[in-house]
Amino acid sequence: MGINIQNLNFAYSETPILKNINLEVNDGEFVGIVGSTGSGKTTFAFCLNGVIPHLIRGKFSGDVEVSGKNTKSFEVFDLAKFLGLVFQDPDSQIFSITVEDEISFGLENMGIKRNEIKKRVESVMNALKIKNLRDKETFAISQGQKQKVCMASVLAMNPEILVLDEPTSQLDFRGTRGIYEILRDLNRKGKTIIVIEHKVDWLLKYADRVLVLNNGNFVIDGEPKEVFRNPALERIGVEIPKAFRIEKFLKRSGIKMDFEKLIRV
């Protein structure tokens, strides 16, 4: 099942943003998507949960299947049960007055029983360590906390596939590590994780597969180690993880050592 994309093309107006994308993501994969700004990462994320073509108009062609459901024939709110999207900008995702209401909103939409909602909100707040925010007003918390609330609101719905659009952009090192540990945990429990990320060092450590989006198409696809060693990466404008930059430098300087060890550090 997972995700199956065939000949996906999209343009908001004239300029094509996504060009003939073909992609398959299997159940249980942990995929990182990298690409320079404006390469179409966010647009791609909106294609996955059906916001494109249902809510954002443009020239759309091709097929996107999520858990065997074609996004063209299912509404966004029906797809939400299978694929959860954490937005890049928390301010455009959050709209409830209190944090607790925000997290339970998705569950209410699924028609889940009230005491079950309480339980799920509780456990997801525990997992993300945001219990102290429960009764806070959503516009009075920091950007990093907002990002966690957004993630909690999607995690609570327990979708099979999680797509996160730069979920850690406002978080510090510890916060970022916390998020990735949670994602790894979910992944081990069988969830499919797709993360759009600029902080490539984290993908190297946590993802099993990295896709490079450039000019509306996935130009490189493979294991993190292969992808980040690809010489084309710099030209595309994607950051190379520190370990690989050091490796490159050492190799050029003629120093011989166990590079695999270096990367694992």
């Binding site: 049960k81 959050i94 209410e108």
Partner: peptide, 17 residues
């Protein structure tokens, strides 16, 4: 517009609790 996208992305549309 973002609000519309946000609520639908979280399943607003069918029978609620």
């Amino acid at each position: 517009k973002n609000l519309a996208i946000s609520v639908e992305s979280r399943g607003f549309g069918r029978k609620r609790t």
